[in-house]
Simulated assay, not measured.
Amino acid sequence: MAERLDARFLFHLALLSLLLGSANGNGLKFGFYKTSCPDAEAIVRKTVSSYFSRDPTVSAPLLRLHFHDCFVRGCDGSVLLNSTETNLAEKEAMPNQSLDGFYVIDAAKAALEKACPETVSCADIVALVARDAVSLATGQGNSLYQVHTGRRDGFVSKASEAVANIPSAFSDFDELKAEFASKGLSVKDLAVLSGAHAIGNSHCFSFGKRLNNYKGKGDIDPTLDPNYAMELRNKCSPGINTVVEMVPGSSTSFDTKYYDLVAKRKGLFRSDEALLQDKRTRDYVYSRLHAPESSFFYDFGKSMMKMGKVGVLTGNAGEIRRNCALVNH
């Protein structure tokens, strides 16, 4: 369980809010719904808390939805749209077929439509839900960061764009660096946002190649701890689509244990190991081993706010969907 928030972290969080709050990047700002729907954030938080109290594993899928939304067309809620007779939507792309948590988004939207019809965008709901979900997973009750709001919803969702833009679990450092840079995210953001793997589970097919046929010869990825590889091999028997915790014994607690695993070469994905391939990301991994968790939470909040501004639609662009899975016309 993460350590209690200390005074220094709260000071840094307040300072970060002051620094970023006045910089309405891309038309976003804190408290966008202060007048039009003053209880918007409280309604979302109540919805997420309700589901989290019954099933803490819901946090990881909700956080993942935000990542997958922002990496395709920006943070415009396109990941929520259903396919049509003439279009295969992002949901159907291979990287997105294991996405979950849409029902929480729908529940939050329904509550908001009742309180403030056609006011709060689905894109903002995704961002707020991700913040609340990961904050609850710290076990502390406080929000890790504030969310800029004012996003509007996009009209387009294409499976082909999801395939092209969502980073692969098998990516190496150079590939990840380029993919993050294309979204305006730095190498540090890559190291920090990878910390989202502190929560959640994965299916064996997402990393199985590292265990059985890494170079086509039935071999194990040499960058993976051999004892851990054998342990995973035993769990991932052929023909069994087993679910494995990202951080064994701690998959519902958002903390820095993920970095401990990466440092020991026990990250599930090739993309986790990729953090050790470059001095900058490697140094960040090792710095987490002894630094207070509050410093990571600060970094994570800063990077999440930065990612949340990628490619947003504001002002008169886009729309406010009445149903998050469907465009209004």
Rank of each mutant, 00 (worst) to 15 (best):
E3K: 14
E3L: 12
R4W: 00
R4N: 13
A7I: 09
L10T: 12
A23R: 13
N24F: 07
G25S: 13
G25F: 08
K29D: 06
S36H: 06
V48G: 07
F52V: 03
D55A: 07
T57L: 09
A60W: 04
L65C: 05
C70H: 06
C70K: 07
F71M: 15
R73W: 06
G74N: 05
L80W: 02
L81Q: 06
A93N: 01
M94C: 00
S98Q: 12
D100G: 01
G101T: 07
I105S: 03
D106A: 15
D106G: 04
A107S: 14
K109N: 08
L112W: 05
E118I: 10
V134Q: 00
A137T: 07
G139V: 12
S143W: 00
H148A: 14
G150V: 10
R152W: 01
G154K: 06
A159K: 02
E161S: 14
A164N: 13
P167L: 09
A169M: 14
S171V: 00
D172A: 08
E175I: 12
A178M: 06
S186K: 06
L190S: 01
L190W: 01
G195M: 05
G195A: 06
G200M: 02
G200Q: 02
F205Q: 08
S206Q: 14
F207T: 00
K209W: 13
Y214M: 05
G218H: 10
I220G: 05
I220S: 03
L232R: 00
L232P: 01
S237V: 15
T242W: 09
V243Y: 05
E245Q: 15
E245L: 02
P248I: 05
G249E: 07
D255N: 15
T256W: 01
Y258D: 01
K266M: 15
G267R: 01
F269T: 06
R270P: 02
R270V: 11
L276V: 09
S287K: 10
L289P: 11
S295F: 14
D299I: 11
F300C: 06
G301C: 10
G301M: 11
S303C: 10
M304C: 08
G311H: 13
V312T: 15
G318P: 06
G318N: 13
G318T: 12
N323F: 15
N323T: 11
N328R: 14
H329C: 09
